[in-house]
Design a protein around this nucleic acid. Structure first.
Ligand SMILES: [Mn+2]
Ligand SMILES: [Mn+2]
Ligand SMILES: [Zn+2]
Ligand SMILES: [Zn+2]
Lengths: 138, 138
DNA sequence: ATCATACTTGCAACACCGTTGCATTTATAA
DNA sequence: TTATAAATGCAACGGTGTTGCAAGTATGAT
């Protein structure tokens, strides 16, 4: 059985509220990463600060992860893996379409190992592939 | 023989001015990527807008490239390769040290090929490795 | 060397966004 | 039901990208 929005929020130490439930639903149904603006548009009127804090809380609790695709506009996507409190575990390639400007998580793409010179220590790696997505071919 | 700052600027279609020459020198002598603030500090008083436009011009003319290391603070580094007017050709790994917060270009690190699903078209790829740089080991 | 012209610089101004404080409202559990 | 802690809405501040415009400067021609 599906776990409800309420359950998921409680399981991550967040009080379920109408806004949070809806935001969680939006991420759950999204096939691409969502910027603040796109989330705001789904509400009659929502305070941008409230949304800001909602996203911050979601990120801290491991419900979503923030994606910097190089556009300067932060986007967010749900964490499929179980991410611990404040520590994200997933490392996957992100794709940014230069045509439709959508950013998606490519969870199944093989994540390469980068051979860093001796002396350097790798903690985590961010990879963004820019190009044309499958929906944007003529 | 070394090409002077004046020469380089002229060769890239930019009028040599005191500010531009100094900015170019700073990039030329830097061993890491430089954020606006760090550049500003090297001047007695420089208008942030002038610096902004200088960096924009340098980037457009292929003198420097902008690096988004995920911190939200843009940094710039000189283009070693010859980058065409408005079109950068170099693709290399960037390293961001979580300790000293410096970002460096790893031009010699092998750039991996990412196997994107069919239907996708790759234009360019951005890779940022986060960790601890060689100078930050105990 | 002088000068007209185009480019560069400095300053004001605006928009956007991240962030925080605080008062009010809402969720939770006693 | 009620006391308490948390979430929300609003104001406000700071940083920064961006543009317009006037004044200063580099350049090439005279
Ligand atoms: Mn992702
Ligand atoms: Mn670089
Ligand atoms: Zn697309
Ligand atoms: Zn370091």
């Amino acid at each position: 059985m599906e776990s409800t929005a309420k359950d998921t929020l409680r399981n991550h130490g967040l009080r379920p509220t109408p806004i949070r439930e809806k935001v969680w639903e939006l991420f759950n149904n999204a096939s691409k990463a969502l910027p603040n603006k796109e989330l705001e548009m789904q509400f009659e009127n929502i305070d941008r600060i409230t949304l800001y804090r909602t996203l911050k809380a979601f990120e801290e609790k491991g419900l979503i992860h923030k994606i910097d695709d190089g556009t300067g506009v932060p986007k967010y996507a749900s964490c499929h893996d179980d991410c611990a409190d404040g520590h994200h575990q997933h490392e996957h390639v992100h794709f940014h379409c230069l045509n439709c400007l959508s950013t998606t998580c490519l969870e199944d793409v093989q994540f390469p190992k980068i051979d860093i010179p001796p002396g350097y220590l790798t903690e985590n790696t961010s990879i963004v592939v820019n190009g044309r997505c499958a929906n944007c071919q003529n």
